[in-house]
Amino acid sequence: MRSPRTRGRSGRPLSLLLALLCALRAKVCGASGQFELEILSMQNVNGELQNGNCCGGARNPGDRKCTRDECDTYFKVCLKEYQSRVTAGGPCSFGSGSTPVIGGNTFNLKASRGNDRNRIVLPFSFAWPRSYTLLVEAWDSSNDTVQPDSIIEKASHSGMINPSRQWQTLKQNTGVAHFEYQIRVTCDDYYYGFGCNKFCRPRDDFFGHYACDQNGNKTCMEGWMGPECNRAICRQGCSPKHGSCKLPGDCRCQYGWQGLYCDKCIPHPGCVHGICNEPWQCLCETNWGGQLCDKDLNYCGTHQPCLNGGTCSNTGPDKYQCSCPEGYSGPNCEIA
């Protein structure tokens, strides 16, 4: 077999650049994923090309098998939009790539799955459409700058595939050579959905506090709520009108309100015997008056200043008058 000629994957630097851009600016990249293909086995019993010639040398006159050299087999892949009637021409609109030389006439790579040499990765940054057309071609490398490479066999497949970690196996069982391969579509990290176009990256910072479920939905951490999980859940009972919080379990009062639940107004400074319904009010309790509710309107009842059976009459805020019984006098009937 001729010395292998290595063929790198098509578009790999571009895919790395796209992945970097997506990581830095995830909101700009609407989708991100990759179409993967792995060659599993190849069977070319006679070492022939599609045109019937030998990959190298002439045929044995007896059994008609190619004798001089085995094929240097590598694969090309073209991925494009779905076609009900597949045409070989036209651009590979979803991507293209190739393997290096991975074997001779016949080989089996099932035991070495995950080997990069027999895998082609086609990254995409558009919403995966699920339906596709795939062209797979086996080629013989001439290892010659003058002699062109020659095609051994080709296969085409049109179908639908959803993103999954599971592989789907396909076979080419007609023509001079048979080969088996597997395909799958996977979303990149933080991308979800059938189109790999739903973005969700767990975070716990100013912009949100959430994890992501298997469908890419945000699940808020304990103590947080809202579409972006950036609204803290305040202390139970915290007034929704007069209290708020920036951290879970907190209850910060608005100006003019106080209390554990921010449901108590702050009265006017200096208010003595008054209450409030709104901040800075001083609504006097019964029998109290004045701007600060510090004037006693029922001095008689509060202090009972009249002595010796005198009768007390309220005459104004903090004022009274005693009517003394016979034989007593003085402001409080204290003089006998």
Rank of each mutant, 00 (worst) to 15 (best):
W280L: 08
M160T: 10
D250E: 09
K241R: 13
N44S: 03
S93C: 12
P267S: 07
Q50L: 07
E36K: 02
K65T: 13
I266M: 05
V136M: 01
A31G: 02
Q236P: 12
G243R: 07
A19T: 14
D63E: 13
H157N: 08
G226V: 12
G289V: 12
P4S: 14
P4T: 15
I152T: 01
A138P: 00
V185L: 08
Y261F: 03
G259D: 07
K319Q: 08
K264Q: 08
C212Y: 04
S41F: 13
N217H: 14
S3Y: 15
R9W: 15
P13S: 15
A177P: 04
E278D: 09
N108I: 11
T174M: 13
K218R: 14
N314K: 00
A155V: 12
D116G: 09
D116N: 08
F199S: 07
A58P: 05
S141P: 09
N60I: 13
A26D: 05
S142T: 11
H178N: 06
E70A: 13
C29Y: 03
P317L: 14
G89E: 05
K319T: 05
E180A: 14
G223A: 12
K154N: 13
R25Q: 14
Q304R: 05
W224G: 12
H303L: 15
A58G: 09
G195A: 04
N60H: 15
I151T: 12
P248R: 15
N143Y: 05
R85L: 13
C245Y: 11
F75C: 01
Q50E: 03
C253G: 05
D294H: 03
Q281H: 07
W257C: 00
S84Y: 06
G309W: 13
C238F: 06
E278A: 07
T73K: 05
C212G: 04
D144E: 04
G301V: 00
G159V: 12
G62A: 15
M42T: 03
T311A: 11
S41P: 03
N162Y: 08
L122V: 06
M160K: 03
Y82N: 05
N215T: 06
N230D: 05
V77G: 14
Q166R: 13
F126L: 03
N277Y: 00
V146A: 11
N230T: 07
Y210D: 14
N51K: 03
Y192H: 12
T286A: 03
G89W: 13
E38Q: 03
K154M: 09
E222A: 13
H303Y: 14
E153Q: 04
A58V: 09
E36Q: 01
M221I: 10
P129T: 04
P163L: 03
G57R: 06
G249V: 05
S112N: 06
R68C: 12
D72N: 10
D213A: 06
L135V: 01
W167R: 00
Q254L: 07
L109H: 04
R85C: 14
V121E: 01
G62V: 15
R113P: 10
P325H: 06
F194Y: 06
T219N: 03
D204N: 07
Q83K: 10
M225R: 07
L135R: 05
C282G: 00
P123T: 02
G327V: 15
C293F: 00
D144N: 03
A138S: 02
C276F: 00
R12S: 14
P267A: 11
Y328S: 03
C300R: 01
E153K: 07
D149Y: 12
Y255C: 12
N60D: 15
R5G: 13
V77M: 03
N162I: 14
G47R: 04
L14P: 15
C300Y: 01
G90V: 15
C66F: 11
I335N: 08
F179S: 01
W128S: 11
R9Q: 13
L135P: 02
V121M: 04
G301E: 04
H209L: 05
E48Q: 04
N162K: 06
Q172P: 09
L20V: 01
H273R: 08
D189V: 05
C306G: 02
F207L: 06
T174P: 15
C234G: 13
